[in-house]
Simulated assay, not measured.
Amino acid sequence: MSLTKITRLPSARLLSSIIQQQQLFLLPPITPVMTVSKRSMLQGEYRRPGQPKEDKFPWEKIKFDFAKGLEGIKKHFTLLKTECFERFVGPEGRPLTVHILEQNRVIWEFRGPESLEQWTVSSDREIGGQSEVYLKLGKNNTCFLYGTLSSTPPRDGETRYSGYCTMRSKQLLASFDRKKHHDWTSFNCLHLRVRGDGRPWMINIAGENYFSYRKDDIYNYFLHTRGGPYWQDVKIPFSKFFLTNRGRILDDQYYLWLDKINTIGFTLGDKTDGPFQLEIDFIGVCKDHAHTEEFAYEMNKKNP
């Protein structure tokens, strides 16, 4: 192409022709997509460092059992019957007058071995760490969480930090394994009766989100135990819980939605190696009329 022809072209056509020549001569050739195997294109679940990779299809993990199938059908239809009758009584099976005038409610009370089945424990041992955590029923019919914390990271070449132990409640399920949420809109404080060893624990509350990319959002607050033989009654307003995502405090803070609470948990990660213990008598919610705060942290309100 001569110089006279280039000057006669408009600027837009000249720029597009230069870009096309760069794409033809400078960019490497694109490999076809069909060369990738079909198995490698399947997106798998997140695997923690140190865990072995399971090279199985999802249907290969299902265990078929006729007896368990009958038990499951009986269980789900019993739950469905209970849900249908609770609608005629009131919210969550309580009369309407009780639901309106209720000031305190015990959500979890540990009075037998069956109450521990509603909880699950985990530690950094899942990623190759050395921490240990156990859960058992205490002498006074309480939840006794104990173990040993170790901040030594695993030697897998990927994990840099380690040292945590967690106890978390299981997700409530309705009939046919539908999600069931806690509704705490009538209350504004979390009420605990605990006895610790002086370590700081983090209380985690996970709520339901409408977007899948925010599934790791958790509301946290620190519980400082005093230690010693005496019990500690703690009331924490829900307005004090701050929003985090995978351990990082978010700049865009928002108050907790109390109508869709999924789980609550306790995490220890104070980087102090050694034994620990936490005893919990009950976990409940209450209504404090003297507390009128909506949210304790600054919210990024958009300019209308």
Rank of each mutant, 00 (worst) to 15 (best):
C165P: 07
C165L: 03
C165D: 09
T166G: 00
T166I: 12
T166A: 11
T166F: 15
T166N: 12
T166L: 15
T166P: 03
M167E: 02
M167D: 08
R168T: 15
R168H: 10
S169E: 03
S169I: 00
Q171A: 09
Q171N: 08
Q171E: 11
Q171I: 11
Q171K: 13
L172Q: 03
L172Y: 03
L172P: 06
L172K: 12
A174E: 05
A174W: 04
S175Y: 09
S175R: 02
S175I: 05
F176Q: 08
F176E: 03
F176T: 00
D177L: 04
K179I: 13
K179T: 15
K180V: 02
H181Q: 04
H181M: 13
H182L: 10
H182D: 00
H182W: 13
H182E: 07
H182G: 02
D183S: 06
D183C: 03
W184C: 01
W184G: 07
W184Q: 04
T185E: 03
S186W: 00
S186R: 03
S186C: 03
F187G: 01
F187R: 01
F187L: 04
F187H: 00
F187Q: 01
N188E: 01
N188V: 10
N188L: 14
N188K: 05
C189V: 14
L190D: 02
L190W: 10
L190M: 05
H191G: 02
H191Q: 08
H191L: 12
L192D: 06
L192I: 00
L192A: 04
R193N: 15
R193L: 15
R193G: 03
V194E: 07
V194A: 11
V194H: 07
R195W: 12
G196C: 07
D197Q: 05
D197F: 04
D197L: 05
G198D: 11
G198N: 09
R199A: 14
R199K: 10
R199W: 13
P200F: 02
W201K: 02
W201S: 02
M202S: 13
M202V: 15
I203C: 14
I203S: 13
N204F: 14
N204E: 14
N204T: 14
I205A: 06
I205K: 04
I205V: 15
I205E: 10
